[in-house]
């Protein structure tokens, strides 16, 4: 298994490097730069930046250098001292900006992933057992609705419902009078209430696929002779279901972790922007729109690394969880 892991990690590193290169190039590709954004902002407010000011700003940010020089400075900073460069807009190191917004993002993304699994697992198992019943069709239908309605529409609809029928303060992660309060059970509860809606919205998009996979896998397992055999021995239906076929049908949950991370994060960007949550999503969008290139590049790089790590971990966990996969690999490696 060791050579397999080494090869796997080697490829990952190469992928990460390519990701960084492509990210940086794409960020630089659109016309204009951060200073031209500043100029346009000033103009929208009826001010003007003189050509001298513009020149000073360009020099200050080293924007006149070719992109590969900028890339080199940026990537060596990251590798040697872990410095992700400077965010022009925030006037602070990019690392600081990202770290500041990370906790809520992890909370939201983790929550959404958990919710996706819970919903998908429950519905997946239920529909496999009650295949072709009315409730099967109903839940499958709901799952597909969740998949096909764009997140931002859901966010707007949820926002309206929360405002109109529940009288909640929408947007943000806290009620107005809680923003500056000290951490307390009441504040944590307030946070939970605000997190559940975005988490639910992000989760809806991912559940449909998982429901279908679980349903299909479990249906296959249920038709296996060992199920009939266990039933013949008088095993109770609930225990039987959970002990054998469900465990075998769980694999997709693990193997999709890698893909789930980027999809949850990109869902998070849209939903957080519409709902104005203080997570990394709106910051990333803002950085891209403002051509705040080091901040945007660092974000994309970190997302890329997370995805790669996620995929590697899911491979390894899968090998650990499923004896069949483990056998295969040790067979191949020995």
């Amino acid at each position: 298994m060791l050579p397999y892991m080494i090869r796997r990690i080697g490829w990952s590193l190469l992928t990460v490097w390519l990701i960084s290169l492509v990210c940086f190039f794409i960020i630089q590709a659109p016309p204009g730069d951060f200073v031209s954004v500043l100029m346009a902002d000033a103009e929208a407010e009826g001010r003007r930046l003189s050509s001298q000011q513009v020149q000073v700003l360009r020099e200050r940010y080293a924007l006149d250098a070719p992109w590969y020089m900028q890339y080199w400075a940026w990537i060596t900073g990251i590798i040697t001292v872990g410095d992700f460069g400077y965010s022009f807009r925030w006037n602070r190191p990019a690392t600081e900006v990202i770290l500041e917004h990370l906790p809520f993002t992890v909370l939201l993304a983790g929550g959404s992933l958990l919710l996706t699994w819970i919903i998908a697992f429950a519905i997946g198992v239920f529909t496999a057992v009650r295949r072709y019943s009315i409730s099967d069709y109903l839940f499958t239908f709901l799952g597909f609705i969740g998949l096909s309605v764009p997140n931002f529409v859901l966010a707007l609809v949820f926002m309206y419902i929360a405002f109109r029928y529940f009288g909640m303060s929408v947007g943000g992660l806290f009620s107005p009078d809680m923003v500056e309060a000290e951490w307390s059970p009441a504040k944590a509860w307030d946070l939970m209430r605000h997190l559940i809606v975005p988490a639910l919205i992000i989760a809806t998009a991912g559940t449909a696929g998982l429901i279908r996979i679980t349903r299909a896998n479990l249906s296959d397992e249920l038709a296996q002779p060992y199920v009939t055999a266990a039933r013949a021995r008088g095993q109770r239906e609930g225990v039987l279901l959970m002990r054998y076929p469900v465990r075998a049908a769980m694999n997709p949950f693990i193997s999709t972790v890698g893909y789930a991370i980027p999809s949850v994060i990109s869902g998070e960007v849209i939903v957080s922007t519409v709902l104005s949550l203080p997570t990394t999503g709106p910051v990333l969008l803002g950085a891209l729109r403002n051509q705040d290139m080091y901040l945007a590049g660092s974000f994309l790089l970190i997302l890329g690394v997370l995805t790669v790590i996620g995929t590697v971990i899911s491979d390894l966990v899968l090998a650990w969880a499923d004896p069949r996969v483990r056998r295969q690999h040790s067979g191949a490696a020995s």
Binding site: V170, V274, L275
Partner: peptide, 20 residues
Amino acid sequence: LVFDVFDSQEVIAFRAAAGN
């Protein structure tokens, strides 16, 4: 004076409508 910062106009409108 307290100003809450939001990225989306919809959120601002909903908050205003809710009397926030």
